[in-house]
Structures are given as structure tokens and as C-alpha cells.
């Protein structure tokens, strides 16, 4: 391209975004990093540098709790990601068919994304209410019942379900776009070689969807490892810490009178590092896979 703009012009164009980005994202995160090495506890005049003590405490005194939180987070993220993506692909294939009302289906399936966490949390709390909620009324038809979100075995599966309910529409839309990007010629060529039905899906569609699958999985993993507000409203981390994800654990530390805010900040940084490690691993794996395929 012929350069007709001044060299500072592109910088000026991104400057506003950059400034907002640094002020509202980078600077607070750096601030958290700073506080994580202090014994700051709300009293801004009296706090001192403690180095890595908060991290050491997290990995010694609270080791069991931290490991539990990581375990819960990984379970939550794993199942959310797997279910969301399988159902997402399936729904995308279905609403990509030439059927009547496909746009209506698409809109409805995407709708939960419009609702806020508070609302989703409240709605499902009510549905899973063991006393007056519809879920137990259905269960009682089969002669059984459960305390649902209060049951330490069921709580996590329910929270996973609600998370999937919320975001499966988003995954569907991304896959739908991927499907629409695949040229029809490929399928026609494939059908000559006998690739129809499941076979064409397995050997043509899926490999071609690979990049979108990658993006989707990454987004699901990050989203589900970060989540805490939905859980705060649904179970508040209980029962028996069955839904105490890392995000929830960090949030809860603020309540614990023993931990300082400095300590909570340290946990926040640990949370970030855990996600970063997972993202790097997943991305490396997927890049290799893509390279293999191509």
C-alpha cells in the first residue's frame, strides 16, 4: 500500500483504546500484583511489604483448600467445555439445515446469552428449589427427591448444566458460522467418494471446523475457569465446597476474617497463573494438531 498517512496516524487511532485498556485492565492487575506482596488489609496507612509470604501461606496452610478449588475448577471447566462444544456443534448442524423456522430456533437458542448472571442465577435457583421448584416435582413423579443444589454430589453437575445452558447458544453461533464458511463443493466431491451422512460429517466437516473448534474450546475454558458470579448466586461455593471453584475461592477469601486483602490478591494472581498455564497447554496442543492436519 502506498503510504499516504502520517506515521503517527495509526498510533493516534489506537491510542484511545490503548489508554482505556491500560487504565482499566493492566493497571488494576499490576495493582493486585503489588498488593499480593503486602499485608494490606483495608487500612491504607498501615501495610507493609511481606514479599512472597502470602504465596507461601497459600501453598502451605491453605494447600488443601487451594487444591480442592483447583480440582473443582478443572472438573467444572472440563465438563462445561466438552458438553458445550458437543451440543454446540450438533445444534449448529441442525439449524444449518434448510428447515422451516431455522432463524427462530437460532434466536431462541442464543437468547440466554442476553440475560445477566443475576437473572440466570435467580431463575435456576428457583427451578432447583427442593420445596417449590418444578425439578423436584418432576422427580417426585418417579418417587424420588433430592436437595438439588444442597446435595454435595448433585450441586456441581447442576452448576455445570446452568453454565452450559447459558453459553451453548454462543458456541452454536460460532460453529454455525464455521459451517457456513465450508463450501458446498467439498461435500459434493465427497459424496462421489461415498462420504455421506455421518461419514461426511466425520471426515469432511469436523476437520474443516478445526480452527473454530480451537477458538471455541479456548473461550469455553477461559470462561469456565474464570466463573464465580454465577456460582456465588447458585450455591455460594457450597455444599461441602463441592462447587468452590478457584474464582469463588478467591472471592470468599475476602470474607474470611483471617485472610488479609493482600492474601486475597495473592490468590487472585495464582488464579491467573493457573488459567495462563492451562491456556498455554491447550493452545500448544491445538496448534500441533492443526499442523498435523494440514
Amino acid at each position: 500500500m502506498v503510504k499516504t498517512y502520517r506515521s503517527w496516524a495509526p498510533w493516534m487511532a489506537i491510542l484511545p483504546a490503548l489508554i482505556l485498556f491500560f487504565i482499566f485492565k493492566i493497571y488494576p492487575a499490576l495493582g493486585t500484583l503489588f498488593f499480593s506482596m503486602t499485608d494490606f488489609n483495608g487500612n491504607i496507612d498501615h501495610f507493609k511489604w511481606v514479599g512472597l509470604k502470602n504465596y507461601k501461606n497459600a501453598l502451605t496452610i491453605n494447600f488443601d483448600d487451594l487444591m480442592n478449588a483447583i480440582k473443582v475448577s478443572f472438573t467444572f471447566a472440563f465438563f462445561t467445555t466438552v458438553i458445550q462444544n458437543i451440543v454446540g456443534v450438533a445444534l449448529a448442524v441442525l439449524v444449518n439445515l434448510k428447515i422451516r423456522g431455522k432463524n427462530v430456533y437460532r434466536s431462541i437458542l442464543f437468547m440466554p446469552n442476553v440475560l445477566g448472571v443475576v437473572i440466570i442465577g435467580l431463575v435456576w435457583t428457583l427451578i432447583f428449589d427442593p420445596y417449590s421448584g418444578p425439578m423436584n416435582q418432576i422427580l417426585s413423579l418417579f418417587g424420588t427427591s433430592s436437595s438439588m443444589l444442597g446435595d454435595s454430589k448433585l450441586a456441581l453437575p447442576i452448576v455445570i448444566f446452568v453454565q452450559v445452558w447459558t453459553s451453548v447458544g454462543y458456541a452454536m453461533i460460532l460453529y454455525l458460522a464455521g459451517l457456513q464458511g465450508i463450501s458446498q463443493d467439498i461435500y459434493e466431491a465427497g459424496s462421489v467418494d461415498g462420504a455421506v451422512g455421518w461419514k461426511s460429517f466425520r471426515y469432511l466437516t469436523l476437520p474443516l471446523l478445526q480452527p473454530i473448534i480451537g477458538i471455541n474450546i479456548l473461550l469455553s475454558i477461559i470462561g469456565s475457569l474464570r466463573v464465580f458470579d454465577l456460582i456465588m448466586i447458585l450455591t455460594n461455593g457450597g455444599p461441602d465446597e463441592a462447587t468452590m471453584t478457584l474464582g469463588m475461592f478467591v472471592f470468599k477469601t475476602i470474607f474470611d476474617s483471617s485472610g488479609t486483602q493482600g492474601y486475597a490478591s495473592a490468590l487472585g494472581i495464582i488464579h491467573f497463573l493457573v488459567i495462563a498455564v492451562v491456556v498455554v497447554i491447550v493452545q500448544t496442543y491445538m496448534r500441533r494438531r492443526e499442523e498435523k492436519l494440514s
Binding site: 420445596y131 417449590s132 436437595s147 443444589l149 446435595d151
Partner: peptide, 14 residues
């Protein structure tokens, strides 16, 4: 039954 699942807010009303 299932007392662990009942939200506190509903108990007084019920």
C-alpha cells in the same frame, strides 16, 4: 426432607 437445598429466604414464608 432435602433441607440442605432450601434457600434460607423461603423458609419463613413456607
Amino acid at each position: 426432607k432435602n433441607s440442605l437445598g432450601l434457600a434460607y429466604g423461603q423458609a419463613p414464608g413456607l
